[in-house]
């Protein structure tokens, strides 16, 4: 596998969409290519950090109100169908 092939699989690998064979071949390339290994390392940590920050649970005080409003609407739909 050459650099171009290894880099074309970058996001498939990060997103865990690549086949086992591809994963193994890319790993083999990264073991002997510093440039690609550097790109993989940075791209992986950028993706992971963005995910961590986006998923960081924020307090949603309004969620309970929303939920009870929604359940109330479901009650109304149930009532229509009676």
């Amino acid at each position: 596998m050459n650099c171009q092939e290894a880099l074309s699989l970058l996001y498939d690998i990060i997103d865990k969409e690549a086949s086992e064979i591809d994963v193994a071949q890319v790993q083999e390339h990264l073991n002997r290519c510093r440039d690609c290994a550097g790109i993989y390392k940075i791209e992986e940590s950028i993706s992971r950090l963005i995910q961590e920050k986006l998923k960081h649970k924020e307090p949603t005080p309004c969620f309970d109100v929303l939920k009870s409003n929604v359940l109330q609407q479901l009650d109304d739909i149930d009532a229509e169908n009676c």
């Binding site: 550097g38 940075i42 940590s45 950028i46 920050k53």
Partner: peptide, 24 residues
Amino acid sequence: LYGQLASLGPENNPERELFNKILD
């Protein structure tokens, strides 16, 4: 971003330092 981060210096984890400063 890779190019920019790589250019910040060879010391370790420039991306982690950047992201530590960036808020949710």
